[in-house]
Amino acid sequence: MSERPKDFPGDAQLSALYREHARDEPSVEIDERILAAARAAVTVPVSAARRSWWQRWRTTLALTTTLTLTLTLALLQQRLPGDSRREAEVAPPRPVAPGSALPSAARDVAAPAASAPAGVTGDAVAGAGAAAVGVAPRPQAREESSVGQRLAQPAGGSGPRPADGDTPHREGRLAGGRQEVVPESSAAAGKEGNALPAAAAAAPAAASAEQQTAAVGQPPAARQQARAVAKSRADDGRSADDWLEEIRALRREGRNADAAKQLADFRRVHPDYPLPEEFRQ
């Protein structure tokens, strides 16, 4: 209370009377409302003041973690198909079971990750790689031999041109070719050095012959369509025509055994492809 100056026109009696009877006050509800508003005005919001670093950053952390996981999974998914293809390339072609038709073999090649034929699994397939490669051409070689044709071509011209995704074993076969010109049948027999059971060889040979006959017997439109399909269904990025060209090159180099094996592989991959005249012998 301030000191009142002497010239203040006060009246002590009147003042005392007034103060004695001045008892009016605001209601308790009004008091509570005002005090609550005053407290609320200076109270720091709990959400801003008491939140720990974890509460403040948890949304960001969750988003970052989710993003990282998603990216990792996406990268893994990208890598997986490539790995399976690489495995398929490394893995040798499975032997064609006696009695099975060629299209089924073609399906195996088209889907390399598919299960191996019954009775041939895991290491057995890998271990029988070279033999499996050699099994298919043999009947064809016999067929060619039976026709009596000799696939002797002068060496020269452009060499074999392995495709980008060509496999080691295929490269090995191409590199391991010989320059001497020998009859296909004797070359195949001499190279493999083992005789196949007649029953095992007869079925694929018959199937191959049927395929060839069927292909030859197709109408021109169907043949063209098949050729287009075969072209589009490239093996390791290599079209059927390119493959045939490579086989021609092998023949020109005199590597008839390799050429025969390539041709057999080609027939497995492209059973519906109408072979040019020179390969039908």
Partner: peptide, 20 residues
């Protein structure tokens, strides 16, 4: 400065006179 109790004291000190 954020002291709500200070306001409470202030309010209780002057609520009557202001109201009257």
């Amino acid at each position: 400065a954020g002291d709500a109790n200070a306001f409470t004291i202030l309010y209780r000190r002057h609520r009557g006179p202001l109201y009257r």
